[in-house]
Design a protein around this nucleic acid. Sequence first.
DNA 1: TTATCATTCAATATAATTATTGAATATCGC
DNA 2: GCGATATTCAATAATTATATTGAATGATAA
Lengths: 223, 223
Amino acid sequence: MSSRSPKQVLFAQFAAVAKAAAHPLRLAILEQLAQGPRSVEVLADRTGVAVANVSQHLQHMRRAGLTTARREGKYVFYSLADEAVLDLLATLRRVAERNLAEVERVVRDYFEKRDDLAPVSRAELMRRLKDREVVLLDVRPEDEFALGHLPGALNLPLAALQKRLGALPRDREIVAYCRGPYCVLSYEAVAALRVRGFKVRRLEDGYPEWRAAGLPVEGAAAS
Amino acid sequence: MSSRSPKQVLFAQFAAVAKAAAHPLRLAILEQLAQGPRSVEVLADRTGVAVANVSQHLQHMRRAGLTTARREGKYVFYSLADEAVLDLLATLRRVAERNLAEVERVVRDYFEKRDDLAPVSRAELMRRLKDREVVLLDVRPEDEFALGHLPGALNLPLAALQKRLGALPRDREIVAYCRGPYCVLSYEAVAALRVRGFKVRRLEDGYPEWRAAGLPVEGAAAS
DNA sequence: TTATCATTCAATATAATTATTGAATATCGC
DNA sequence: GCGATATTCAATAATTATATTGAATGATAA
């Protein structure tokens, strides 16, 4: 049966791509994969979900062309298939931001409450880093930092922030970043630091976008 | 129950956007809406699907921020919510093109068989139109043409093409377009005209992209 | 008002998706 | 080989999506 027209075949394929992105957990997995390749186990740990479940979602996304997998010893490392997948995530965000009242509400009530200042652009950051005007702060967990981070960044995971305030300068501005837009870590960090009198702003989007832009990185991903 | 974190709320919303695009019929509806506002009845006719079914899909997409609706007399006209929705469709296409073997196969076996020449860019078209070097051919159905088309375009729907070959010049190049990338109409037209000795190429993408780029249009949409 | 038409709603049956569980497979170190 | 570990597979139950049908609503025109 079913000699579907080529147009129908293509639409079915495009729909399969959308479907692969159409689950909150899968988006959380993709956010992790945007940082770099990760094993199934690590992804399960990060998302707080059973391994078998994560494995199934990863395979679903692989069939739809969102992820790729390579085995390395006992581990299978999944990655984003493409920079285009990052674009897809960004586009989903943008459509939701513009047209869904619920998103606007959360952004206003949660994110803007923590940081209502305009974020620092990548261009501005690079310029001011060169002149040593700012200190760059990565608030992701240590292991994520180790796998790749912006050059010269200082790693103070959100959990450790309170105890290690001494590591941060009070005379220079701090620029904080984490996994990307709407990553809560940098927002929480900015809010926490600002009430303690630090001069701090967020970087517009995070590590994945920096790397996708072809800018240099340090850590395991640099090789 | 469920005091979900703001991050989870956002991911759920982003997933809802993806889900709204994750159905072949809904993509076909969105392709129609990309041409301009359409009533439920027209969309049902165009897609060959029951009115109630189309209505449900439209409402699904409206809840997810992909479409908007306005009532005008007896009719309800749906539109794309945003130019960002066009970007979403383009991104889905791009991810599928790059990473799904089935898409590559269809493009090769069907589309490239009909037109393996590089398409004409918008910039090139504008330049050559000004010098009257080319004739612009819209192969969409008459009613779609009436609702909006590129300035100066000649409308010869694919069905009528065979009988009205006399309307086309043999000394100038013809540039054909229709609803967008992978719209079969322009591919079929190019293939049909080329075997008859016409010099013809396709425009890269179609009417919606032209309009989204802010370029002038003629017809009902021009007002 | 009534007749008519476009759209939506509500109910239903079918199909697809998802999380969970436990077993199977693959790889490594010994 | 064996045991340990990472991943996948297979089966299941619960949930969610979908197409269909017929009735209800909203708007127009006579």
